[in-house]
Design a binder for these strands. Structure first.
Lengths: 196, 196, 196, 196
DNA sequence: GATGAATGAGCATTCATTCAT
DNA sequence: CATGAATGAATGCTCATTCAT
C-alpha cells in the first residue's frame, strides 16, 4: 500500500472527490489543479502524497475496485448453492453500480481504454470474471448448470450484461431500480429467452 | 454529411488509419501530428477538411458506427423468424467486432466516457439496443420468447454481453473465434444456464 | 501603379469591400479567406492580382489616401485667401471622414502603428501636414496669421485636432454633424479659447 | 486589481518591458515567447499571472493609462485658475508623452483600432477628454473662456492636438522639446491663429 | 507536512502562400 | 484568368511537475 493509498484511505472524503472528478471528466480532462481545489489542498500537497497524476488516478481506482472485490467475495461467501451464488453476485454488482457508479464508469472506461493502463484493468476484470467462472464450473460439476456451456464465455457474458444493463438504466432513467433489473437478468440467465 | 465525412468516405485508407490511431491511443493521447503523418498529409490538410480534432474524431467514429448499423439492419432483413433474427444480429455484431475492432473499442470507451461526447454515443447505443428490443418484442408477441421478460433489459443485456465477450476474447486470445462464441451466446440466451 | 491597384481601381466595389474589412477588423485579424469570400472570388484570384497580403493592404490604403490628397488639393485650389484655404481644408478633411471613415481609421491606426508600415504612413501624414503648414506660412507672410507661431507645430495641431474630433463624434454620436464641428474648430483655431 | 496587474505593479521593470515590446511591435506581431524571453521568465510564468495574451496586453495598457490619469489629476489639482489648469494639463500630457511614449503609442493606436478592444480605450479617452471639458466649462462659467464654444468639441480638439504634435515631434526629431511645443500650443489654444 | 509560484515541453490551431488543373 | 485543395511554419495556450520557503 503506497503513501497515496494511505492518504485516500484515511480521508474518504478526498477519495470520493477524486472519484467524482475522474469519473465525470475522465483522466485527461481532469487537471491536478481541479483535484487540488476540489480537495481543498494545494497542488503541492497532492504531489507530496502521490508521485504523479497517474499514481493518484491508479490509487483512486484501485481503492474503488477493491471495494467491488470485497463486496463480490462477501456475496459468494454467504451461499453454498451455485445458483444462489450467481444471484448474490448479480446483486452485489448491481449494488456496487448503485453505490459507486463513478468507480464503475472509470472501471469500464479503462477496460476498453487505450494501451497505457489497460493491462491493469484487464487483470482486475479477469479476476472478477474468474470469480463468476469458478461458480459456473462448480455448478456444472454439481449438475446444476448445463455442462456443454463454455464457462469462460458465460462468465464474461454475465459480467458484461450486468454492467451494461446497469449503466443503461442509470443513463436512461437516472436511477437503478435494482429489483427489476435483478429479476430479469436472473430469468434470462437461468432460463433463457425461449418460451417453454 | 460534412466536408470531413466526405474526405474519409472517399479515402477509406485514411479512415482506417484514423480508426487505428484513435482506438489504440485514445482521443487525448493521439496528436494531430501523428494522424497527419500516418495519413501521409500535412497537418493543415486535416484542418482543411475538419474544423478541429473533435470533428475529425466524431466523423471517424460516426462513419464507423454507421457501418455497424448497416450490418445489423442487413442481418435482420434476411430473416423473418425472430429467433433467427437474434442469431443473425449476434453474428453481425461479432463480425463487426472481428472486422472493425478498433471502432468497437472506441464505441464502448465513449459509451462509458466522460460527459462531453457521451450523449452522441448514448443515442447510437440506444438505437442498436432498440433494434434488438424490437425483435424481442416481436418474438414475444409471436409466442416464441417468454412473455414475462422485460424486453428493454434483455436487449441491453444481449448488447452488452456480445461486446464484452468479443473484447474479452480479443484481449485474452488475440483473436475472435466467432463460431465458438456465437454458439455459446446463443445457448445461453435461448436456454439459459440451468440444466433441464 | 501595380497590377493590384489596377484591379481595385477598375472594380470600386471590391475596393470598398477591402476597406470595410480592413478598417473594421484590422490588418492582422483580417484573413485572406475573408477578403476573398467578401469579394466573391477565390483566394487564388487575389494572389493573382496581389503579390501578398501586404500588397493588397497597401494598395487598398494607398488608393484610399490618394482620395484624401485629391480632396485636400481641390479644396485649397478653390481659394486664394489663407484663412479661407484653412476653412476649406477643414471642410475637406471632415468630408473625407464622413465619406471614407474606414480609410481614415486605417490611416490613423497605421500612423501610430508598429514599425512595419509606419514609414509609409508617416510620409503621407507629413505631406498632409505640410499642406496645412504651407498655407499657414503663406498666411503669416501675408500678415493674416500671428507671425510668432511655429507653423509646423500649428499644422500638426490642426491636423490632429480635426481627425480626433471627427472620430470622437463618430464614436460618441454615431454620425458626424459637420457644420457644428467645423464652426467650433474654426472658432478655436482662429480666435482661441480666451474671451476677448 | 487582477493578479496580473499586481505582477506588473510589483515589478516595474517587467511592466516597462511589456510596454516596450507591445508599443514597438504591436499586439499581433508580439509573441508571448518574445515577451517571456524579454522579461527573463518562462512563458508559463506569464500564463500563471495572466489568463491570456489579451489580459497581459490590457493590464499593461491599463496600468500605463492610469499613470496618465494620475499625472493629469495632480496637474489640475495644483491650480485654481482655469487657464492655469489648462496649461498644467498640457504640460502633464507632454511630460507623459516624454516619459511614457510607448504607452501613448499603444493608447492612440487602440483608440483608432479595430472593434475588439476599442470600447475599453474609448472609455479611457472619454474620461480624459471629460477632464479637459470640465476645466473648459468651469472657465466659461467664470467668464475666462469664450462662452459660445462647444466645450466637448474643444476638449476633444485639445486632446487630439497635444498627442498628435507630440508624436509628430518624436517621429520627426526623435525627441520632444517640451517648452517649444507647450508654448506654441498654448498660444494657439488661447489666442488662435489670427493676428490681432 | 504543506504550499504555490515558476517552469517548459507538448499540442491544437491558424493562415498566408503555392500550384496543379 | 481563375480556382481551391494542400501546405507547414508560426504561435497561443495547457498542465503535469518541481522546489524553495
Amino acid at each position: 500500500m503506497s503513501k497515496g493509498t494511505d492518504f485516500l484511505n484515511k480521508d474518504r472524503e478526498k477519495f470520493k472527490i477524486a472519484v467524482d472528478i475522474f469519473s465525470s471528466k475522465g483522466y485527461h480532462s481532469t487537471t491536478m489543479d481541479e483535484v487540488a481545489q476540489a480537495m481543498g489542498v494545494a497542488k503541492g500537497t497532492i504531489y507530496y502524497h502521490f508521485k504523479n497524476k497517474d499514481e493518484l488516478y491508479l490509487c483512486t481506482t484501485q481503492l474503488g475496485i477493491s471495494i467491488l472485490e470485497i463486496m463480490a467475495r462477501e456475496a459468494i461467501g454467504q451461499h453454498t448453492d451455485s445458483r444462489e451464488k450467481i444471484v448474490a453476485l448479480i446483486e452485489s454488482y448491481l449494488l456496487f453500480m448503485h453505490d459507486y457508479a463513478g468507480i464503475a464508469y472509470i472501471f469500464l472506461r479503462e477496460l476498453f481504454g487505450d494501451h497505457n493502463r489497460r493491462d491493469f484493468f484487464r487483470e482486475a476484470t479477469k479476476s472478477y470474471q474468474k470469480l463468476i467462472q469458478n461458480v459456473l464450473e462448480e455448478g456444472q460439476r454439481a449438475g446444476a448448470f448445463a455442462g456443454d456451456l463454455n464457462a469462460e464465455i458465460c462468465a464474461s457474458s454475465i459480467f458484461g450484461m450486468i454492467f451494461t444493463v446497469a449503466i443503461h438504466y442509470l443513463q436512461v432513467y437516472g436511477e437503478l431500480s435494482m429489483d427489476v433489473v435483478k429479476d430479469n437478468i436472473c430469468k434470462l440467465i437461468f432460463h433463457g429467452l425461449l418460451e417453454v
